[in-house]
């Protein structure tokens, strides 16, 4: 294969750039879902404690 270093660098970037964005989005979603679950569970308890 001619120009192998240039091709290899391009394909590495082609995989790494979207993968980095995907990983970031996945972690954000997971963290948000956990905090939301914790908060709404907490809020529910607080509300039920406030209004018996």
């Amino acid at each position: 294969m001619t120009h192998l270093p240039f091709i290899a660098a391009s394909y590495a970037l082609a995989v790494l750039v979207p993968a980095a964005f995907g990983l970031n989005a996945y972690q954000r979603l997971r963290r948000a879902r956990r905090r939301l679950a914790a908060l709404s569970g907490h809020g529910h308890k607080a509300r039920s404690a406030g209004n018996p």
């Binding site: 294969m1 001619t2 120009h3 192998l4 240039f6 091709i7 391009s10 394909y11 970037l13 082609a14």
Partner: peptide
């Protein structure tokens, strides 16, 4: 040559 493969990205 093979450098054209960069086009697919």
């Amino acid at each position: 040559g093979d450098a054209v493969r960069i086009m697919y990205i």
